[in-house]
Design a protein around this nucleic acid. Sequence first.
DNA 1: GCTAAAGCTTGCCCTTAGGGTAAGGTCAAC
DNA 2: GTTGACCTTACCCTAAGGGCAAGCTTTAGC
Lengths: 136, 136
Amino acid sequence: MNTLVKTLVTIGQAAKQTGLSAKMIRYYEEAGLLLKANRTDAGYRLYNSQQLQQLGFIKQARALGFSIAQISSLLGLWRDPNRSSREVKQLAEVHLDEIKQKVAELQQMQKVLQQLADSCCGDDQPQCAILDGLQR
Amino acid sequence: MNTLVKTLVTIGQAAKQTGLSAKMIRYYEEAGLLLKANRTDAGYRLYNSQQLQQLGFIKQARALGFSIAQISSLLGLWRDPNRSSREVKQLAEVHLDEIKQKVAELQQMQKVLQQLADSCCGDDQPQCAILDGLQR
DNA sequence: GCTAAAGCTTGCCCTTAGGGTAAGGTCAAC
DNA sequence: GTTGACCTTACCCTAAGGGCAAGCTTTAGC
């Protein structure tokens, strides 16, 4: 028994282990985030532990709202031993600004909508402050 | 001169007056928010002031983040003299909850990402807390 | 050894709310 | 009469996958 044998798993196993769907994994490969996976003679994709780790990286990055394009850049830096953390931080801060922007927009919507809702009686009458507010 | 003549405008004029694009107006018509617009003999769409008002309504609602489907419901209530403001308020509060949900998700992302960025030196070295955090 | 179920493959259409472009008809000004 | 601005429909594109179908492979049970 060779302990150096890499344990290879099919896409379904990889999905289970990473918490992604098989569809996502194929999509990430097609999008160029992952190198083309090795295949069995029958054409089944096989993943080793390093590739599983990459998939985990992608999952975490997606969970933080990074786009596929941004993750592509992040992975490039991740793999690059000559990277500077400055580059990574720049990418992160660009995304952070995007998030802050979206939060601000949504909060503005929320504020206006809340005001409209608060001034609407919500009773049986047709008169409605929300509709009036939208008509303006 | 008949002051009752309805002033009709083409789609380009309607776009200018409402701040929408002609493409949006056609899209809203196709999506069923608007009745099919009247046409000139040449097939140009024509809008009267009531239709312009509806377009304004749609624009306000979109600005508050309502989806096309939600706006369809809102317009239905708007046109219905027998509506109750309760129904309108319910729709608004559903959407308000969606917004609050999104804000919460984004703020959670923001928080985590900010922590990672704060712990990243952002210098010339390859060691990077952000990449480490994503790898986890 | 046979068969059924589960797993894998590719390919296609669907989602939101429009943007972009093309090919062609129409209108107004010069 | 022609040029330029405006209008029409039709088609493809976006982001990040989900869902489904048809067909091949592997595995489990008998």
